[in-house]
Protein backbone atom coordinates (compact mmCIF):
# COMPACT_ATOMS: atom_id res chain seq x y z
CA UNK A 1 0.00 0.00 0.00
CA UNK A 2 1.43 3.38 -0.97
CA UNK A 3 2.31 5.78 1.84
CA UNK A 4 1.09 9.33 1.99
CA UNK A 5 3.56 12.07 1.22
CA UNK A 6 1.15 14.67 2.55
CA UNK A 7 -1.65 14.52 5.06
CA UNK A 8 -3.76 17.55 5.88
CA UNK A 9 -6.07 17.30 8.87
CA UNK A 10 -8.88 19.77 9.46
CA UNK A 11 -6.89 22.76 8.26
CA UNK A 12 -8.42 26.12 9.11
CA UNK A 13 -7.04 29.55 8.29
CA UNK A 14 -8.87 32.65 9.33
CA UNK A 15 -8.21 36.23 8.26
CA UNK A 16 -10.27 38.13 10.78
CA UNK A 17 -13.86 37.25 10.05
CA UNK A 18 -13.01 35.55 6.75
CA UNK A 19 -12.34 31.83 6.82
CA UNK A 20 -10.06 31.34 3.83
CA UNK A 21 -9.53 27.62 4.48
CA UNK A 22 -12.37 25.91 6.29
CA UNK A 23 -11.76 22.48 7.81
CA UNK A 24 -9.93 20.97 4.86
CA UNK A 25 -8.67 17.39 5.10
CA UNK A 26 -7.05 15.36 2.35
CA UNK A 27 -4.04 13.21 1.69
CA UNK A 28 -1.66 12.96 -1.26
CA UNK A 29 -0.22 9.58 -2.07
CA UNK A 30 3.46 9.14 -2.76
CA UNK A 31 3.92 9.50 -6.52
CA UNK A 32 0.53 11.06 -7.11
CA UNK A 33 -0.49 14.22 -8.94
CA UNK A 34 -3.20 15.66 -6.76
CA UNK A 35 -5.28 18.55 -8.04
CA UNK A 36 -6.94 21.26 -6.00
CA UNK A 37 -9.58 22.70 -8.27
CA UNK A 38 -11.47 25.82 -7.34
CA UNK A 39 -12.45 29.30 -8.49
CA UNK A 40 -10.69 32.52 -7.52
CA UNK A 41 -10.55 33.06 -3.80
CA UNK A 42 -11.41 29.44 -3.03
CA UNK A 43 -8.45 29.16 -0.67
CA UNK A 44 -6.04 27.15 -2.83
CA UNK A 45 -3.01 29.42 -2.36
CA UNK A 46 -3.75 29.80 1.32
CA UNK A 47 -3.77 26.01 1.70
CA UNK A 48 -0.40 25.78 -0.06
CA UNK A 49 1.03 28.55 2.12
CA UNK A 50 0.09 26.59 5.23
CA UNK A 51 1.35 23.29 3.85
CA UNK A 52 4.70 24.82 2.82
CA UNK A 53 5.12 26.36 6.25
CA UNK A 54 4.81 30.01 5.30
CA UNK A 55 2.44 30.53 8.21
CA UNK A 56 0.82 28.11 10.63
CA UNK A 57 -2.86 27.17 10.35
CA UNK A 58 -5.34 28.77 12.72
CA UNK A 59 -6.19 25.24 13.71
CA UNK A 60 -5.65 21.75 12.39
CA UNK A 61 -2.37 20.31 11.23
CA UNK A 62 -0.46 18.70 8.41
CA UNK A 63 2.41 16.31 7.91
CA UNK A 64 4.74 15.97 4.94
CA UNK A 65 6.87 12.87 4.60
CA UNK A 66 5.68 11.98 8.08
CA UNK A 67 7.08 15.25 9.51
CA UNK A 68 4.84 17.78 11.22
CA UNK A 69 4.72 20.94 9.14
CA UNK A 70 4.69 23.29 12.10
CA UNK A 71 7.19 21.60 14.39
CA UNK A 72 9.55 20.09 11.86
CA UNK A 73 9.49 22.89 9.36
CA UNK A 74 13.20 23.02 8.58
CA UNK A 75 13.24 19.36 7.54
CA UNK A 76 9.95 19.66 5.69
CA UNK A 77 11.32 22.54 3.64
CA UNK A 78 14.22 20.40 2.46
CA UNK A 79 11.89 17.89 0.78
CA UNK A 80 9.33 20.24 -0.76
CA UNK A 81 9.52 22.56 -3.70
CA UNK A 82 7.15 25.49 -4.06
CA UNK A 83 6.24 27.13 -7.36
CA UNK A 84 4.24 30.16 -6.32
CA UNK A 85 1.30 31.54 -8.22
CA UNK A 86 2.95 34.96 -8.54
CA UNK A 87 6.12 35.03 -10.61
CA UNK A 88 8.44 35.19 -7.66
CA UNK A 89 11.64 35.94 -9.58
CA UNK A 90 14.18 38.75 -9.67
CA UNK A 91 13.46 40.45 -12.99
CA UNK A 92 16.90 42.03 -13.39
CA UNK A 93 18.73 38.75 -12.89
CA UNK A 94 18.95 36.12 -15.60
CA UNK A 95 16.90 32.93 -15.48
CA UNK A 96 20.02 31.02 -14.59
CA UNK A 97 21.02 33.44 -11.83
CA UNK A 98 17.54 33.13 -10.33
CA UNK A 99 17.64 29.34 -10.30
CA UNK A 100 21.21 29.36 -8.97
CA UNK A 101 20.29 31.70 -6.16
CA UNK A 102 17.48 29.46 -4.94
CA UNK A 103 19.79 26.45 -5.28
CA UNK A 104 22.38 28.20 -3.11
CA UNK A 105 19.77 28.88 -0.44
CA UNK A 106 19.20 25.11 -0.31
CA UNK A 107 22.90 24.77 0.43
CA UNK A 108 23.87 23.44 -2.98
CA UNK A 109 27.22 24.56 -4.33
CA UNK A 110 30.06 23.91 -6.71
CA UNK A 111 29.71 21.27 -9.35
CA UNK A 112 26.54 19.79 -7.84
CA UNK A 113 24.81 23.15 -8.06
CA UNK A 114 26.04 23.74 -11.59
CA UNK A 115 24.80 20.35 -12.78
CA UNK A 116 21.44 20.68 -11.08
CA UNK A 117 20.85 24.17 -12.47
CA UNK A 118 21.57 22.95 -16.00
CA UNK A 119 19.34 19.95 -15.40
CA UNK A 120 16.26 21.90 -14.32
CA UNK A 121 16.78 24.50 -17.05
CA UNK A 122 16.76 21.54 -19.42
CA UNK A 123 13.54 20.16 -17.96
CA UNK A 124 11.67 23.34 -18.67
CA UNK A 125 13.36 23.86 -22.04
CA UNK A 126 15.01 27.15 -21.13
CA UNK A 127 18.74 26.53 -21.67
CA UNK A 128 18.89 28.80 -24.70
CA UNK A 129 17.57 31.95 -23.05
CA UNK A 130 18.81 31.11 -19.56
CA UNK A 131 21.41 33.87 -19.55
CA UNK A 132 19.02 36.65 -20.51
CA UNK A 133 17.36 38.76 -17.89
CA UNK A 134 14.01 37.49 -16.71
CA UNK A 135 12.43 40.85 -17.54
CA UNK A 136 13.10 40.19 -21.23
CA UNK A 137 11.17 36.89 -21.21
CA UNK A 138 7.65 36.25 -22.46
CA UNK A 139 5.03 35.35 -19.86
CA UNK A 140 5.38 31.67 -20.66
CA UNK A 141 9.15 31.74 -20.37
CA UNK A 142 8.92 33.41 -16.98
CA UNK A 143 6.53 30.66 -15.90
CA UNK A 144 9.02 28.03 -16.97
CA UNK A 145 11.84 29.60 -14.98
CA UNK A 146 9.42 29.93 -12.08
CA UNK A 147 8.90 26.17 -12.31
CA UNK A 148 12.60 25.44 -12.69
CA UNK A 149 13.40 27.39 -9.52
CA UNK A 150 11.00 25.18 -7.56
CA UNK A 151 12.69 22.01 -8.80
CA UNK A 152 16.27 22.87 -7.98
CA UNK A 153 16.38 20.96 -4.68
CA UNK A 154 14.97 17.76 -6.16
CA UNK A 155 11.83 17.90 -4.04
CA UNK A 156 9.82 14.80 -3.12
CA UNK A 157 6.67 16.89 -3.08
CA UNK A 158 6.17 19.78 -5.47
CA UNK A 159 3.54 22.47 -4.89
CA UNK A 160 2.43 23.98 -8.18
CA UNK A 161 0.12 26.93 -7.64
CA UNK A 162 -1.67 27.73 -10.90
CA UNK A 163 1.47 27.35 -13.00
CA UNK A 164 -0.28 28.08 -16.29
CA UNK A 165 -2.03 31.37 -15.56
CA UNK A 166 -1.42 33.87 -18.35
CA UNK A 167 0.53 31.44 -20.48
CA UNK A 168 0.49 30.95 -24.26
CA UNK A 169 -0.53 27.47 -25.51
CA UNK A 170 3.03 26.49 -26.41
CA UNK A 171 4.49 27.21 -22.98
CA UNK A 172 1.40 25.73 -21.40
CA UNK A 173 1.95 22.45 -23.19
CA UNK A 174 5.57 22.52 -22.22
CA UNK A 175 4.72 23.01 -18.57
CA UNK A 176 2.17 20.16 -18.75
CA UNK A 177 4.68 17.83 -20.24
CA UNK A 178 7.39 18.81 -17.76
CA UNK A 179 5.03 18.14 -14.86
CA UNK A 180 3.86 14.81 -16.27
CA UNK A 181 7.45 13.74 -16.93
CA UNK A 182 8.65 14.72 -13.47
CA UNK A 183 5.92 12.57 -12.05
CA UNK A 184 6.34 9.68 -14.45
CA UNK A 185 10.13 9.50 -14.60
CA UNK A 186 11.11 10.63 -11.14
CA UNK A 187 8.07 9.66 -9.18
CA UNK A 188 7.74 13.21 -7.88
CA UNK A 189 4.52 13.79 -5.96
CA UNK A 190 2.74 16.95 -7.03
CA UNK A 191 0.05 19.11 -5.52
CA UNK A 192 -1.38 21.09 -8.42
CA UNK A 193 -3.86 23.90 -8.04
CA UNK A 194 -5.82 25.34 -10.90
CA UNK A 195 -9.12 26.76 -11.86
CA UNK A 196 -8.95 25.19 -15.31
CA UNK A 197 -10.88 21.95 -15.18
CA UNK A 198 -9.27 20.59 -18.38
CA UNK A 199 -5.88 20.79 -16.69
CA UNK A 200 -7.07 18.91 -13.64
CA UNK A 201 -8.80 16.33 -15.82
CA UNK A 202 -5.80 15.79 -18.03
CA UNK A 203 -3.05 15.81 -15.43
CA UNK A 204 -4.33 14.80 -12.04
CA UNK A 205 -4.78 11.34 -10.63
CA UNK A 206 -7.17 12.68 -8.06
CA UNK A 207 -8.88 16.01 -7.68
CA UNK A 208 -10.19 17.86 -4.65
CA UNK A 209 -12.79 20.49 -5.47
CA UNK A 210 -12.58 23.49 -3.18
CA UNK A 211 -15.00 26.39 -2.93
CA UNK A 212 -15.07 29.22 -0.38
CA UNK A 213 -12.51 27.45 1.74
CA UNK A 214 -14.37 24.14 1.86
CA UNK A 215 -13.40 20.89 0.19
CA UNK A 216 -16.66 19.81 -1.39
CA UNK A 217 -15.62 16.75 -3.41
CA UNK A 218 -12.60 14.52 -3.71
CA UNK A 219 -12.06 11.67 -6.14
CA UNK A 220 -10.50 10.73 -9.45
CA UNK A 221 -11.71 12.98 -12.27
CA UNK A 222 -13.28 9.99 -13.96
CA UNK A 223 -15.33 9.04 -10.93
CA UNK A 224 -16.36 12.61 -10.24
CA UNK A 225 -17.68 12.89 -13.78
CA UNK A 226 -19.26 9.45 -13.70
CA UNK A 227 -21.08 10.36 -10.51
CA UNK A 228 -22.62 13.21 -12.41
CA UNK A 229 -23.91 10.73 -14.97
CA UNK A 230 -24.54 11.97 -18.44
CA UNK A 231 -24.34 15.66 -17.99
CA UNK A 232 -26.50 18.69 -17.41
CA UNK A 233 -29.32 20.10 -19.47
CA UNK A 234 -30.25 23.68 -18.78
CA UNK A 235 -33.71 24.66 -19.79
CA UNK A 236 -34.87 28.24 -19.96
CA UNK A 237 -38.57 28.46 -19.05
CA UNK A 238 -41.02 31.33 -18.97
CA UNK A 239 -42.05 30.69 -15.38
CA UNK A 240 -40.92 28.68 -12.40
CA UNK A 241 -43.36 25.93 -13.16
CA UNK A 242 -43.21 23.54 -10.19
CA UNK A 243 -45.49 20.99 -11.86
CA UNK A 244 -43.22 20.88 -14.91
CA UNK A 245 -40.15 20.46 -12.68
CA UNK A 246 -41.66 17.54 -10.82
CA UNK A 247 -42.76 15.88 -14.06
CA UNK A 248 -39.31 16.28 -15.60
CA UNK A 249 -37.60 14.94 -12.50
CA UNK A 250 -39.84 11.87 -12.80
CA UNK A 251 -38.59 11.10 -16.31
CA UNK A 252 -36.53 7.84 -16.47
CA UNK A 253 -33.29 9.31 -17.85
CA UNK A 254 -33.36 12.31 -15.45
CA UNK A 255 -31.75 12.12 -12.04
CA UNK A 256 -32.81 15.45 -10.69
CA UNK A 257 -34.26 18.74 -11.80
CA UNK A 258 -33.93 21.97 -9.82
CA UNK A 259 -34.58 25.59 -10.51
CA UNK A 260 -31.60 27.80 -10.16
CA UNK A 261 -33.12 29.87 -7.43
CA UNK A 262 -33.33 33.62 -7.32
CA UNK A 263 -31.16 33.74 -4.20
CA UNK A 264 -28.37 31.56 -5.68
CA UNK A 265 -28.26 33.79 -8.70
CA UNK A 266 -28.23 36.95 -6.69
CA UNK A 267 -25.46 35.90 -4.37
CA UNK A 268 -23.45 34.73 -7.31
CA UNK A 269 -24.01 37.96 -9.18
CA UNK A 270 -22.81 40.02 -6.25
CA UNK A 271 -19.38 38.40 -6.56
CA UNK A 272 -17.99 39.99 -9.68
CA UNK A 273 -15.22 37.46 -10.10
CA UNK A 274 -17.73 34.78 -10.90
CA UNK A 275 -20.32 34.73 -13.57
CA UNK A 276 -23.75 33.33 -12.96
CA UNK A 277 -24.47 30.28 -15.00
CA UNK A 278 -25.68 31.12 -18.47
CA UNK A 279 -29.20 32.46 -18.24
CA UNK A 280 -30.89 33.69 -21.38
CA UNK A 281 -31.95 37.28 -21.16
CA UNK A 282 -35.62 36.61 -21.75
CA UNK A 283 -35.82 33.48 -19.62
CA UNK A 284 -37.72 33.86 -16.41
CA UNK A 285 -36.48 30.61 -14.86
CA UNK A 286 -33.66 28.17 -15.47
CA UNK A 287 -34.27 24.52 -14.81
CA UNK A 288 -31.10 22.51 -14.20
CA UNK A 289 -31.58 18.91 -15.20
CA UNK A 290 -29.03 16.26 -14.18
CA UNK A 291 -29.18 13.50 -16.74
CA UNK A 292 -28.02 9.94 -16.28
CA UNK A 293 -27.91 9.69 -20.06
CA UNK A 294 -27.83 12.81 -22.20
CA UNK A 295 -29.56 11.66 -25.39
CA UNK A 296 -32.37 9.83 -23.64
CA UNK A 297 -32.94 12.64 -21.19
CA UNK A 298 -33.01 15.22 -23.95
CA UNK A 299 -35.58 13.27 -25.97
CA UNK A 300 -37.75 12.67 -22.92
CA UNK A 301 -37.60 16.30 -21.78
CA UNK A 302 -38.45 17.67 -25.24
CA UNK A 303 -41.23 15.16 -25.60
CA UNK A 304 -42.70 16.11 -22.24
CA UNK A 305 -42.54 19.83 -22.97
CA UNK A 306 -44.21 19.33 -26.28
CA UNK A 307 -47.03 17.25 -24.73
CA UNK A 308 -47.53 19.48 -21.70
CA UNK A 309 -47.26 22.63 -23.78
CA UNK A 310 -44.39 24.02 -21.69
CA UNK A 311 -42.69 26.78 -23.64
CA UNK A 312 -38.90 26.38 -23.96
CA UNK A 313 -37.10 29.72 -24.21
CA UNK A 314 -33.56 28.32 -24.31
CA UNK A 315 -31.76 25.06 -24.13
CA UNK A 316 -28.16 24.30 -23.18
CA UNK A 317 -26.55 20.92 -23.17
CA UNK A 318 -23.44 20.90 -20.95
CA UNK A 319 -20.97 18.13 -21.70
CA UNK A 320 -19.98 15.99 -18.76
CA UNK A 321 -16.67 17.21 -17.32
CA UNK A 322 -15.25 18.65 -14.15
CA UNK A 323 -16.67 22.01 -15.06
CA UNK A 324 -20.18 20.55 -15.00
CA UNK A 325 -19.32 18.70 -11.81
CA UNK A 326 -18.38 22.00 -10.23
CA UNK A 327 -21.44 23.71 -11.63
CA UNK A 328 -23.56 20.96 -10.26
CA UNK A 329 -21.96 21.15 -6.83
CA UNK A 330 -21.96 24.90 -6.42
CA UNK A 331 -24.45 26.30 -8.89
CA UNK A 332 -21.78 28.50 -10.44
CA UNK A 333 -19.02 28.42 -13.00
CA UNK A 334 -15.36 27.79 -12.25
CA UNK A 335 -14.13 30.38 -14.68
CA UNK A 336 -14.16 34.07 -14.49
Amino acid sequence: MPGYILEANHLVKQYGALTAVNDVSFAVEEGEIFGLLGPNGAGKSTAIAILSGLFPPTSGGAAIGGLDVVHNLAKVKQIIGVVPQDLALYPTLSGRENVRFFGELYGLRGKGLQTRVDEVLGYVGMQERANDRVQTYSGGMKRRINLAAGLVNHPRLLFLDEPTVGVDPQSRNHIFESVARLNREQGMSILYTTHYMEEAERLCHRVGIIDRGKLIALDTPRRLIAALGGGIIQLGLATMDEAARAAIEALPAVRSATFATESTMKSAASRPAEVVMPVQANSKAVLKIEASHNNDALLQVLHYCNEADVEILSLDLLEPNLETVFLNLTGKSLRD
Partner: peptide, 11 residues
Protein backbone atom coordinates in the same frame (compact mmCIF):
# COMPACT_ATOMS: atom_id res chain seq x y z
CA UNK B 1 6.86 40.53 -6.11
CA UNK B 2 6.46 37.43 -3.94
CA UNK B 3 10.16 36.59 -3.83
CA UNK B 4 10.09 37.20 -0.08
CA UNK B 5 7.46 34.51 0.37
CA UNK B 6 9.30 32.24 -1.99
CA UNK B 7 12.58 32.63 -0.13
CA UNK B 8 10.78 31.70 3.08
CA UNK B 9 9.39 28.53 1.55
CA UNK B 10 13.06 27.55 1.41
CA UNK B 11 15.00 26.43 4.45
Amino acid sequence: SGTLRRVFSLP
